[in-house]
Nucleic acid binder design. Structure first.
Lengths: 163, 163
DNA sequence: TATTATACATAGCTCAGCTATGCATCTGTC
DNA sequence: GACAGATGCATAGCTGAGCTATGTATAATA
């Protein structure tokens, strides 16, 4: 590494430089993990689709546009994703009683099953790489994921507006 | 869940089912983070390219094929990436003295700078979302990243050794 | 009722990544 | 040392995800 000069000694605040390195590392390792997962499971379904299903699973039915924001894709992209998901009956479109332009997109039983199966496949594919971890280490990762969820879930919206 | 029979009873091991959930969560949150990063920084350069530069930065010069494995892309894809990187002079191709078919791909000064700048941009873009974290929480994430690195890098090292 | 805003759909493009294959070089066997 | 197969990279061509721009229908409002 080339720019290691700026190691500060403060106790509580995290200097931006350090955060930068941390976050870029995270993005790197994370992206690698995604690729490993994709290759290991021979995935044909796009990550965005799984993310969409996850969002529906976590937050319940919502409009297509909202779903697009949550899943971080453009509205036209979400239109495609939803169309595909509809075709395989992983979701249902429910007419919005208050607004004839809109749909509520809801997870269908098949979608729930598919999501579960995906998670299993993912776990099976990746587990061998993580088999050496002990309880504590798994716990660290688990807590980190929770933190990342917190940080990316809610404020996401604010940051998006700013950009 | 198909192969849950093999869950051992030792106290320290983590059942596959839990790992599955954990890992799928990780992949989800991770992918979201990637998209946030991409959108926030208005990235035009592909993640694979940054990953390639990171690998070179961490492990030093290596062959194109090896780089492909490390970065988890196919060899033809890496050929493209390297061609692009070469064009903007972020890497240099060094003829391999032992094998006229091969090149050693090395990070060039411009590439080092570009990588640093990317990390900064990433940090600046994402830092606001993580500003509320205290030292301990940052530490948890940091340790998780280390663990992930270990778990995903292992074979990488073998591959490196092999060469 | 006419105008503007909003929600989703469609069209068309770009680019990353893949497989299949080609070409050059290396390695091993006779 | 020459030929066969293996290996390293390049090229061709395809697919699919994502985007912007725009269209169409409905809402909201003056």
């Amino acid at each position: 590494m080339s720019n290691e000069i700026t190691t500060t000694t403060t106790t509580t605040t995290t200097p931006t430089s350090e955060l930068s390195e941390l976050l870029s590392d995270l993005v790197s390792v994370t992206h690698r993990l995604t690729r490993i997962a994709a290759q290991a499971t021979g995935e044909s379904t796009s990550p965005a689709t799984w993310r969409t299903l996850s969002v529906l699973s976590s937050f319940g039915p919502m409009r297509l546009g909202e779903l697009a924001k949550q899943s971080r894709v453009s509205q036209p992209t979400m239109t495609k994703i939803v169309a595909n998901l509809n075709e395989v009956e992983w979701i249902r479109r429910i007419a919005d009683v208050d607004d004839a332009r809109a749909w509520q997109i809801a997870l269908a039983p098949k979608g729930i099953r598919a999501l579960d199966e995906w998670r299993s496949r993912l776990g099976e594919a990746l587990a061998p790489m993580f088999s050496d971890l002990d309880r504590d280490e798994v716990d660290v990762i688990s807590r980190a994921i929770d933190l990342l969820h917190e940080c990316t879930d809610v404020r996401v919206l604010d940051v998006v507006k700013a950009a």
